[in-house]
């Protein structure tokens, strides 16, 4: 395989993995981080899940139902939900990820101001709902109304960008399994997010992670919840079809 010069300069030269298949993020973790991800008694991300449960039950205002007031026990009603996101909202025709679906209920059904992307409450609720799908396989739809969003996301993934002129695929398809400074490059699936990153000392969203990758190649960092990242998220979720949800994962 021929590497672009910019990438060859970054990579520690190791035999390339023959990564024909897409593997879950946890397969690329060190034994220590994998053990932490699997041990709920030590996993700091569980603190966000627990906060999410608290927000789920909280009455937002007088005469306004809590999330639980309409949806009941999340262990039953939210099981498997996260595996289907992002999805197209039938009413508006917009592509929504789990965060935006929660915000929709917050604004339209609770009559409250949005929590805001990356706010503690939204991260906690997203982690809590995603946690109800832990280890279930990803099953997003890319046909019908979703098709144009999917096509845009796929194009983005394979498009060279930034000062380093690198496409997502050049790292996450062509060089998965190789070391990039201290990291092992994974297949770049989003199934672990929201994830607890040691670098953040906190739980953060997939879009926060994508912003870090965009910065890594000195490309435009899109806004949280921007259409560009939503389309990309749909493509990533489809690439991960059949792979288990890991959220909240532990990452470096």
């Amino acid at each position: 395989m021929r590497l672009p010069a910019s990438l060859a300069a970054l990579l520690l030269i190791l035999p390339a993995a023959t990564a024909a298949e897409i593997r879950p993020g946890r397969d690329f973790l060190s034994p220590e981080l994998r053990a932490l991800q699997e041990d709920e008694a030590r996993h700091p991300g569980m603190l966000w899940v627990e906060q999410g449960e608290e927000v789920w039950r909280r009455t937002p205002a007088l005469d306004k139902p809590s999330c639980a007031g309409c949806h009941g026990d999340a262990a039953g009603t939210m099981r498997g939900v996260a595996t289907r996101y992002p999805m197209v909202d039938r009413a508006s025709g917009r592509l929504l990820n789990l965060e935006l679906r929660i915000e929709q209920c917050r604004m339209e059904r609770q009559g409250q101001p949005a929590f805001g992307y990356e706010s503690p409450e939204l991260l906690a609720l997203t982690a809590y709902i995603a946690y109800q799908s832990r280890s279930l396989p990803m099953t997003v739809r890319i046909d019908g109304a979703a098709a144009p969003f999917f096509d845009a996301g796929r194009a983005f993934f394979h498009e060279r960008q930034g000062q380093l002129n690198l496409a997502c695929s050049q790292c996450h398809d062509d060089n998965a399994g190789r070391r990039l400074r201290g990291d092992v490059i994974s297949n770049g699936v989003g199934t672990g997010f929201p994830a607890y990153r040691l670098e953040w000392n906190a739980v953060g969203s997939l879009h926060r992670r994508l912003r870090a990758c965009s910065l890594g190649v000195r490309a435009v960092q899109f806004d949280y919840g921007s259409p560009d990242y939503l389309n990309l998220e749909l493509y990533l979720a489809w690439r991960a079809r059949g792979l288990p949800m890991e959220a909240p994962a532990v990452r470096r």
């Binding site: 970054l10 990039l180 400074r181 201290g182 990291d183 990153r197 670098e199 953040w200 926060r208 912003r211 870090a212 990758c213 910065l215 890594g216 960092q221 470096r252």
Partner: peptide, 9 residues
């Protein structure tokens, strides 16, 4: 070891 991608966001 050092992290390759530092967060800008």
């Amino acid at each position: 070891t050092l992290s390759a991608c530092v967060d800008g966001g």
